[in-house]
């Protein structure tokens, strides 16, 4: 179809350009530097979370003092401890949903997904730092291979986080206390299961496969859950509970 359209007025077009440029001048895009975002979010991480990290490290140090050098169950021990390193991680990352802060965060400068990601990095790094510290202490004190100790600690750690994310999404958890209780129960279950499974040091090739496959599966589950959460937050859709 062809039709008649009046000629564009150059003066009017210039007026549009001017109006748009004036708006741009008054509303310069402000991006929060990544470092400020981290320090800002660090302030909101609960003191209990940091206390928990210190407590677990002290527990590991106490275990080293109490147990004899060359303790043969070091791998089982770290498997039992590691879920307690991170049981506060999920309630910490999702606390905005329990405290009805998500609506507020959604209208703020930084998107809800960015804030979730920053919290995930802070909490995750703190947990990994603690776990590596414990693994280092155990490997040194009990004369174990460091990598093996790390894997035995990492698998329950990954599964604790994966299951907690999944359960807090599926179950009708309405408060942070509820989420913490759920994660503690989950940590006990994961610790019980992982410390009862044959550790890596047993010269059993099948067990090595089981541990590595379990680590891969747990990591894949976490990645999928985080991706889904970020997508929901980006779209502004919270299907939490």
């Amino acid at each position: 179809m062809k039709d008649y359209i009046p000629e564009v007025s150059t003066a009017r077009m210039q007026q549009v350009i001017q109006a748009g440029q004036n708006f741009m001048e008054k509303n310069l895009p402000e991006r929060t530097p990544l470092m400020s975002l981290f320090t800002e979010q660090m302030r909101y991480v609960s003191k209990f979370f940091w206390a928990c990290q210190v407590l677990v490290l002290l527990t590991a140090a106490a275990a080293v003092i109490v147990l004899p050098p060359g303790f043969e169950y070091a791998e089982r021990l770290i498997s039992g401890i590691s879920p307690f390193v991170c049981f506060l991680a999920v309630p910490e990352m999702t606390k905005d949903l329990y405290w009805d802060m998500s609506e507020l965060e959604n209208v703020c400068k930084n998107s809800s997904s960015t804030i979730f990601l920053i919290r995930l990095i802070i909490v995750g790094l703190a947990n990994i730092f603690t776990l590596t510290g414990i693994a280092g202490i155990f490997a040194g004190a009990f004369e174990e291979v460091f990598v093996r100790i790390v894997i035995c600690g990492m698998v329950p750690f990954v599964w604790e986080n994966a299951m907690c994310l999944l359960l807090t999404k599926i179950l009708p958890v309405k408060s942070r206390t509820g989420a913490v209780i759920l994660c503690v129960i989950m940590a006990m279950a994961v610790a019980a299961v992982s410390s009862s499974v044959l550790p890596l040091s047993q010269e059993n090739p099948h067990m090595q496969f089981v541990w590595l496959a379990s680590a891969a599966a747990g990591t894949a589950l976490i990645a999928a859950e985080v991706k889904m959460i970020l997508r929901e937050r980006k779209e502004g859709v919270f299907l939490w509970n």
Binding site: R12, Q15, V16, A19, G20, F23, M24, N27
Partner: peptide, 10 residues
């Protein structure tokens, strides 16, 4: 048209 471009820049 002006409204469209102003909404666009916002």
């Amino acid at each position: 048209t002006q409204e469209v471009f102003l909404k666009l820049v916002k």
